[in-house]
Protein backbone atom coordinates (compact mmCIF):
# COMPACT_ATOMS: atom_id res chain seq x y z
CA UNK A 1 0.00 0.00 0.00
CA UNK A 2 1.11 3.52 -0.72
CA UNK A 3 3.13 5.11 2.08
CA UNK A 4 1.12 8.36 1.71
CA UNK A 5 -1.83 6.61 3.34
CA UNK A 6 -0.03 6.39 6.64
CA UNK A 7 1.31 9.94 6.62
CA UNK A 8 -0.17 11.88 9.54
CA UNK A 9 -0.28 15.19 7.66
CA UNK A 10 -2.31 13.80 4.79
CA UNK A 11 -6.06 14.08 5.24
CA UNK A 12 -7.91 10.90 4.46
CA UNK A 13 -11.24 10.50 2.70
CA UNK A 14 -13.23 7.27 2.61
CA UNK A 15 -14.68 5.87 -0.59
CA UNK A 16 -17.60 3.47 -0.10
CA UNK A 17 -17.77 1.78 -3.46
CA UNK A 18 -20.54 -0.52 -4.56
CA UNK A 19 -19.04 -3.83 -5.71
CA UNK A 20 -21.05 -6.33 -7.69
CA UNK A 21 -20.20 -9.04 -10.16
CA UNK A 22 -23.51 -10.57 -11.23
CA UNK A 23 -21.74 -13.72 -12.40
CA UNK A 24 -20.35 -14.38 -8.92
CA UNK A 25 -22.14 -12.32 -6.27
CA UNK A 26 -25.67 -12.89 -5.03
CA UNK A 27 -26.09 -9.20 -4.26
CA UNK A 28 -24.09 -5.96 -4.27
CA UNK A 29 -21.83 -5.08 -1.34
CA UNK A 30 -19.88 -1.98 -0.35
CA UNK A 31 -16.10 -1.84 0.06
CA UNK A 32 -14.67 1.01 2.12
CA UNK A 33 -11.34 2.44 0.95
CA UNK A 34 -9.21 4.99 2.84
CA UNK A 35 -7.81 7.34 0.21
CA UNK A 36 -5.18 10.05 0.87
CA UNK A 37 -6.69 13.36 -0.12
CA UNK A 38 -4.80 15.82 -2.21
CA UNK A 39 -6.00 19.32 -3.09
CA UNK A 40 -7.85 19.34 -6.39
CA UNK A 41 -8.58 15.64 -6.21
CA UNK A 42 -11.57 14.47 -8.25
CA UNK A 43 -13.71 11.42 -7.51
CA UNK A 44 -12.21 9.76 -10.58
CA UNK A 45 -8.68 10.35 -9.27
CA UNK A 46 -9.73 8.78 -5.97
CA UNK A 47 -11.12 5.72 -7.74
CA UNK A 48 -7.98 5.41 -9.87
CA UNK A 49 -5.87 5.65 -6.70
CA UNK A 50 -7.84 2.71 -5.29
CA UNK A 51 -7.36 0.83 -8.57
CA UNK A 52 -3.59 1.47 -8.54
CA UNK A 53 -2.85 0.98 -4.85
CA UNK A 54 -5.52 -1.15 -3.19
CA UNK A 55 -7.73 -3.19 -5.45
CA UNK A 56 -6.92 -3.73 -9.11
CA UNK A 57 -10.17 -5.65 -9.60
CA UNK A 58 -12.34 -2.53 -9.26
CA UNK A 59 -14.19 -2.05 -12.54
CA UNK A 60 -15.02 1.42 -13.83
CA UNK A 61 -15.28 3.24 -17.13
CA UNK A 62 -13.46 6.47 -17.87
CA UNK A 63 -11.54 8.02 -20.68
CA UNK A 64 -11.06 11.75 -21.22
CA UNK A 65 -10.91 13.03 -17.62
CA UNK A 66 -12.37 16.36 -18.75
CA UNK A 67 -16.15 15.90 -18.94
CA UNK A 68 -16.10 15.45 -22.70
CA UNK A 69 -16.44 11.72 -23.29
CA UNK A 70 -19.39 10.81 -21.06
CA UNK A 71 -17.87 7.54 -19.83
CA UNK A 72 -17.68 8.10 -16.08
CA UNK A 73 -21.24 9.07 -15.11
CA UNK A 74 -22.11 7.45 -11.77
CA UNK A 75 -23.93 8.13 -8.54
CA UNK A 76 -21.67 10.00 -6.14
CA UNK A 77 -23.21 10.56 -2.71
CA UNK A 78 -26.56 9.66 -4.21
CA UNK A 79 -26.49 12.10 -7.11
CA UNK A 80 -25.76 11.82 -10.84
CA UNK A 81 -22.27 13.12 -11.53
CA UNK A 82 -19.32 12.71 -13.84
CA UNK A 83 -16.59 11.31 -11.60
CA UNK A 84 -13.94 13.24 -13.55
CA UNK A 85 -15.38 16.69 -12.95
CA UNK A 86 -16.57 16.14 -9.39
CA UNK A 87 -14.15 17.64 -6.89
CA UNK A 88 -13.91 15.70 -3.65
CA UNK A 89 -13.87 18.96 -1.67
CA UNK A 90 -17.19 20.03 -3.23
CA UNK A 91 -18.86 16.96 -1.73
CA UNK A 92 -18.18 18.44 1.72
CA UNK A 93 -17.89 15.04 3.30
CA UNK A 94 -15.10 12.65 4.18
CA UNK A 95 -17.41 9.76 3.39
CA UNK A 96 -17.99 9.31 -0.33
CA UNK A 97 -20.45 6.76 -1.62
CA UNK A 98 -19.98 5.67 -5.21
CA UNK A 99 -22.58 3.59 -7.05
CA UNK A 100 -23.16 2.72 -10.69
CA UNK A 101 -25.87 4.61 -12.63
CA UNK A 102 -29.16 3.08 -11.45
CA UNK A 103 -31.69 1.35 -13.71
CA UNK A 104 -29.12 0.02 -16.14
CA UNK A 105 -27.98 -3.61 -15.75
CA UNK A 106 -24.68 -3.80 -13.86
CA UNK A 107 -21.90 -5.59 -15.73
CA UNK A 108 -19.40 -5.24 -12.90
CA UNK A 109 -18.97 -2.75 -10.06
CA UNK A 110 -19.39 0.73 -11.57
CA UNK A 111 -19.69 -0.45 -15.16
CA UNK A 112 -23.26 -0.64 -16.46
CA UNK A 113 -24.64 -2.10 -19.66
CA UNK A 114 -25.34 0.82 -22.01
CA UNK A 115 -26.24 -1.31 -25.05
CA UNK A 116 -29.97 -0.57 -24.70
CA UNK A 117 -29.16 3.12 -24.28
CA UNK A 118 -27.16 3.18 -27.49
CA UNK A 119 -29.72 1.08 -29.35
CA UNK A 120 -32.20 3.89 -28.65
CA UNK A 121 -29.63 6.47 -29.70
CA UNK A 122 -29.33 4.67 -33.04
CA UNK A 123 -33.11 4.31 -33.26
CA UNK A 124 -33.64 8.08 -33.44
CA UNK A 125 -31.27 8.19 -36.45
CA UNK A 126 -28.73 10.61 -34.99
CA UNK A 127 -27.80 12.19 -38.30
CA UNK A 128 -29.48 14.51 -40.79
CA UNK A 129 -32.38 12.87 -42.62
CA UNK A 130 -33.94 14.27 -45.77
CA UNK A 131 -36.99 13.77 -47.92
CA UNK A 132 -34.88 13.06 -50.98
CA UNK A 133 -33.42 9.97 -49.36
CA UNK A 134 -29.93 11.31 -49.77
CA UNK A 135 -29.43 13.02 -46.48
CA UNK A 136 -29.06 9.82 -44.48
CA UNK A 137 -25.93 8.95 -46.41
CA UNK A 138 -22.73 9.17 -44.39
CA UNK A 139 -20.34 11.80 -45.76
CA UNK A 140 -18.43 9.86 -48.37
CA UNK A 141 -14.65 9.87 -48.56
CA UNK A 142 -11.78 7.84 -49.93
CA UNK A 143 -11.15 6.50 -53.41
CA UNK A 144 -14.21 5.83 -55.50
CA UNK A 145 -16.49 7.90 -53.29
CA UNK A 146 -19.17 9.88 -55.12
CA UNK A 147 -18.53 13.56 -55.55
CA UNK A 148 -20.51 15.72 -53.08
CA UNK A 149 -22.85 16.96 -55.80
CA UNK A 150 -23.94 13.39 -56.48
CA UNK A 151 -24.98 12.98 -52.85
CA UNK A 152 -27.04 16.15 -52.85
CA UNK A 153 -27.50 17.13 -56.46
CA UNK A 154 -26.93 20.80 -57.07
CA UNK A 155 -27.76 21.62 -53.49
CA UNK A 156 -25.88 23.30 -50.72
CA UNK A 157 -27.56 23.08 -47.31
CA UNK A 158 -26.91 26.43 -45.80
CA UNK A 159 -27.63 27.41 -42.25
CA UNK A 160 -27.44 30.83 -40.65
CA UNK A 161 -25.48 31.28 -37.42
CA UNK A 162 -28.75 32.22 -35.70
CA UNK A 163 -30.41 28.96 -36.84
CA UNK A 164 -27.43 27.01 -35.56
CA UNK A 165 -27.45 28.83 -32.24
CA UNK A 166 -31.11 27.92 -31.68
CA UNK A 167 -30.23 24.32 -30.78
CA UNK A 168 -26.74 24.91 -29.37
CA UNK A 169 -27.73 23.54 -25.94
CA UNK A 170 -28.73 20.19 -27.42
CA UNK A 171 -25.43 19.73 -29.24
CA UNK A 172 -23.31 19.58 -26.09
CA UNK A 173 -24.75 16.26 -24.87
CA UNK A 174 -21.96 13.73 -24.26
CA UNK A 175 -24.27 10.67 -24.00
CA UNK A 176 -23.24 9.89 -20.42
CA UNK A 177 -26.67 8.35 -19.73
CA UNK A 178 -27.36 10.20 -16.46
CA UNK A 179 -30.66 11.71 -17.69
CA UNK A 180 -32.19 8.46 -18.88
CA UNK A 181 -31.04 6.75 -15.67
CA UNK A 182 -32.85 9.43 -13.64
CA UNK A 183 -36.18 9.25 -15.50
CA UNK A 184 -39.11 7.55 -13.69
CA UNK A 185 -40.78 6.80 -17.02
CA UNK A 186 -37.67 4.81 -18.00
CA UNK A 187 -37.59 3.06 -14.61
CA UNK A 188 -41.00 1.50 -15.17
CA UNK A 189 -40.86 1.19 -18.96
CA UNK A 190 -37.37 0.35 -20.23
CA UNK A 191 -38.72 0.45 -23.80
CA UNK A 192 -39.09 4.24 -23.49
CA UNK A 193 -36.60 5.98 -25.78
CA UNK A 194 -35.61 8.16 -22.83
CA UNK A 195 -34.44 11.77 -22.51
CA UNK A 196 -30.97 11.27 -24.04
CA UNK A 197 -32.19 9.73 -27.30
CA UNK A 198 -35.07 12.22 -27.52
CA UNK A 199 -32.72 15.14 -26.90
CA UNK A 200 -30.59 13.86 -29.77
CA UNK A 201 -33.79 13.67 -31.84
CA UNK A 202 -34.50 17.27 -30.92
CA UNK A 203 -30.96 18.29 -31.87
CA UNK A 204 -31.78 17.21 -35.44
CA UNK A 205 -35.48 18.16 -35.45
CA UNK A 206 -34.42 21.71 -34.57
CA UNK A 207 -31.76 21.70 -37.28
CA UNK A 208 -33.00 23.59 -40.34
CA UNK A 209 -31.20 21.11 -42.62
CA UNK A 210 -33.17 18.13 -41.29
CA UNK A 211 -36.52 16.93 -42.63
CA UNK A 212 -39.29 17.12 -40.01
CA UNK A 213 -41.64 14.89 -42.01
CA UNK A 214 -39.17 12.05 -41.49
CA UNK A 215 -37.85 13.12 -38.11
CA UNK A 216 -41.00 13.61 -36.05
CA UNK A 217 -42.44 10.11 -36.61
CA UNK A 218 -39.22 8.65 -35.18
CA UNK A 219 -39.84 10.41 -31.88
CA UNK A 220 -43.59 10.77 -31.43
CA UNK A 221 -44.76 7.23 -30.65
CA UNK A 222 -46.14 6.07 -27.33
CA UNK A 223 -42.62 4.89 -26.44
CA UNK A 224 -41.27 8.28 -27.51
CA UNK A 225 -42.00 11.82 -26.33
CA UNK A 226 -45.38 10.96 -24.79
CA UNK A 227 -43.74 8.99 -22.00
CA UNK A 228 -42.24 12.31 -20.89
CA UNK A 229 -44.40 13.84 -18.16
CA UNK A 230 -42.27 16.94 -17.47
CA UNK A 231 -40.84 15.38 -14.32
CA UNK A 232 -37.59 17.38 -14.74
CA UNK A 233 -35.35 14.68 -13.21
CA UNK A 234 -33.34 14.57 -16.46
CA UNK A 235 -32.72 18.31 -16.45
CA UNK A 236 -31.61 18.14 -12.81
CA UNK A 237 -29.35 15.13 -13.41
CA UNK A 238 -27.59 16.39 -16.55
CA UNK A 239 -23.90 17.06 -15.73
CA UNK A 240 -23.72 19.37 -18.75
CA UNK A 241 -26.74 21.38 -17.52
CA UNK A 242 -28.71 20.96 -20.73
CA UNK A 243 -32.38 22.04 -20.41
CA UNK A 244 -33.54 18.62 -21.63
CA UNK A 245 -37.20 18.89 -20.61
CA UNK A 246 -37.51 22.12 -22.56
CA UNK A 247 -36.20 20.38 -25.69
CA UNK A 248 -38.67 17.49 -25.26
CA UNK A 249 -41.50 20.00 -24.86
CA UNK A 250 -40.48 21.55 -28.19
CA UNK A 251 -40.71 18.11 -29.79
CA UNK A 252 -44.26 17.65 -28.48
CA UNK A 253 -45.27 20.98 -30.00
CA UNK A 254 -43.65 20.05 -33.32
CA UNK A 255 -45.61 16.78 -33.37
CA UNK A 256 -48.88 18.54 -32.55
CA UNK A 257 -48.32 21.22 -35.17
CA UNK A 258 -47.64 18.57 -37.78
CA UNK A 259 -50.78 16.67 -36.79
CA UNK A 260 -52.90 19.81 -37.01
CA UNK A 261 -51.44 20.56 -40.42
CA UNK A 262 -49.26 23.49 -39.45
CA UNK A 263 -46.10 21.94 -40.88
CA UNK A 264 -44.35 22.54 -37.60
CA UNK A 265 -41.21 24.40 -38.43
CA UNK A 266 -41.92 27.99 -39.36
CA UNK A 267 -40.27 28.53 -42.72
CA UNK A 268 -38.67 25.06 -42.66
CA UNK A 269 -38.55 22.96 -45.76
CA UNK A 270 -40.89 20.39 -44.20
CA UNK A 271 -40.61 17.98 -47.10
CA UNK A 272 -38.04 18.49 -49.77
Amino acid sequence: MDQALGAADTPTVYFNVQRYDPEVDAKPRYDRFAVPYEPGMTVLQGLLWILDHVDGSLALRYSCREAACGSCAMLVNGWYRLACKTQVKDLRSKEITVQPLPHYPVIKDLVVDMSGFFAKYRAVQPYLVGGDGQRAVEPASGPGAPAPEEVAPGREFRQSPADRAAFEDATICILCGACTSSCPSFWTNPDYLGPAALLKGYRFAADTRDCLAERVPLLSGEDGIYRCHTIFNCTAACPKEIPITEALQSLKRMASRRLLGGGGGGGRQAAR
Partner: peptide
Protein backbone atom coordinates in the same frame (compact mmCIF):
# COMPACT_ATOMS: atom_id res chain seq x y z
CA UNK B 1 -48.54 24.41 -14.74
CA UNK B 2 -48.01 21.43 -17.05
CA UNK B 3 -50.06 23.00 -19.86
CA UNK B 4 -47.90 26.13 -19.56
CA UNK B 5 -44.84 23.92 -20.11
CA UNK B 6 -46.57 22.37 -23.11
CA UNK B 7 -46.96 25.87 -24.53
CA UNK B 8 -43.27 26.44 -23.88
CA UNK B 9 -43.91 28.88 -21.02
CA UNK B 10 -42.06 28.88 -17.71
CA UNK B 11 -40.17 25.64 -18.33
CA UNK B 12 -37.01 27.05 -16.76
CA UNK B 13 -39.01 28.30 -13.78
CA UNK B 14 -40.64 24.96 -13.08
Amino acid sequence: RVVLFDLGLGVRRQ
